[in-house]
Structures are given as C-alpha cells and as structure tokens.
C-alpha cells in the first residue's frame, strides 16, 4: 500500500522543502510564505500537526533548540521522498508540455 502521506500535500511539500535548511516552526511558516510568494500561509495548528506527523514518519527530526523552540531539519529519508516527488511532478509537467506542442500544431 502507498504511504499515507504520499503524494505529498502542498503543506507537507513546502515544509520538507523549507527544512532542507534547519529551522524552528515559526521560521518554517515565514520561509514558506516567502517561497510561495505569499500564497501559502500556514496556521499554527496546521504547522504543529504537520511537523508532528513528518517527525513521526522520520522524514524530519529535531536537530537542536533555540530557547524553548525546537529546531527541525530534513532527514535522509525525507530527502529521498523529495526526490521521488520531484520525479513524479517532472513527469506530470512533461505531460503538460506534450499537450502544449499539440495545441501549437
């Protein structure tokens, strides 16, 4: 059976991409807002739940603390998930290109 978190939701996808650089929760939200050009603004409960979930599956892990905030970073397994997702999305993108050229003809 497929992994329950796959294919990645937009939230999970952005969090994994953001955590290629270790960050604490609130900084993850800020980085994602920037990465998505303001279109994805995560709320506190959503980010909390997603981080718990990704941590539980071993795709991210706590790597330190800054005050009372936990800092998380992506794991090797998490990077692997991103690679698989990238291939899946590239394939879908290639299908878009296919239909584009058809239209031009």
């Amino acid at each position: 059976m497929k992994h329950p978190l796959l294919p990645l939701s937009e939230t999970m996808h952005y969090i994994l991409l953001a955590l290629r650089e270790p960050l604490h929760g609130y900084a993850v939200m800020q980085k994602i807002e920037e990465m998505s050009e303001g279109s994805v603004v995560l709320a506190a409960g959503t980010l909390y739940g997603a981080i718990e979930n990704l941590n539980k599956h071993g795709w991210i892990e706590p790597v330190g603390k800054s005050g009372r905030r936990k800092i998380y970073g992506i794991t090797a397994e998490g990077l692997n998930v991103l690679k698989v997702e990238q291939e899946r999305l590239l394939h879908i993108l290639s299908l878009y290109k296919g239909s584009d050229s058809d239209e031009k003809v």
């Binding site: 939701s9 603004v41 995560l42 709320a43 409960g45 959503t46 739940g49 997603a50």
Partner: peptide
C-alpha cells in the same frame, strides 16, 4: 486560544488535512 484579530491570520487550521484531523 485568543489573539488580536489580523486579516488572514485568524485561523488555526489552514488546510483540509489539518481540519480533517481536527
């Protein structure tokens, strides 16, 4: 949870999955 109201930042769940888990 309580906070000062701010446009677009007043929810605690921002996607379907987290609302569903709630």
């Amino acid at each position: 949870w309580q906070k000062e109201a701010a446009e677009g930042r007043d929810v605690i769940f921002s996607d379907r999955q987290s609302k569903g888990s709630y």
